[in-house]
Amino acid sequence: MNSFEEINIGDTLGPLELFVSKDQCRAYARTMGMGEGAGRFTDDEAARKEGLPGMIIPGNMSLGLLSKLVTDWIGSSNAWLTRMNTTYRVPVQPDHTVTIHGFITNKNPEERTTEIDVWMENEESERLVTGTATVEFRK
C-alpha cells in the first residue's frame, strides 16, 4: 500500500475473488461455537426448512472476508482498520465464487484517515453484502 499522502480518492482495492466452500462454512460455524440454530450455516436441508435456498455463510464470516480486502491492502504498513460496518442485502451461499471490491471514497488529512466502500458480489455481479471502512494512518 502507498503512504497516506500517495493515496487518492477513487483508488481501488482488489478485486479479490474467493471461492468459499461448504466445508469452510461449516468449519467457521464450528470454530465460532455457533451450536444450536447453526443449521442454516452447516446443512442445506436445515437451511431450506427456514426458507433459504440452501446453506448460507454466517454474517460474521462475510464481514471477515470484506475486512480481508482492507487488511490485505494495509499489509505491513503503518495503518490499521479502525471501523467497519456492513449491510446484509442478500444471503451469501457457499460453493460459489464471490468477488470483493473496494474504493477509496474520502480522505481526511487532519485525522489521517481514509474512507473505503467495500462490497461482495456473486457471479452475476449482484451486490450481496455492502459496507464501509475507515483506515487510520499513524504519523
Binding site: K22, E45, G54, D95, E123, E124, S125
Partner: peptide, 14 residues
C-alpha cells in the same frame, strides 16, 4: 458491464 464470473462446480451437498 462486468464479465460474469463462471459458476463453480457444486461440491457435495448435505
Amino acid at each position: 458491464r462486468r464479465k460474469t464470473v463462471p459458476h463453480a462446480v457444486a461440491m457435495e451437498s448435505r
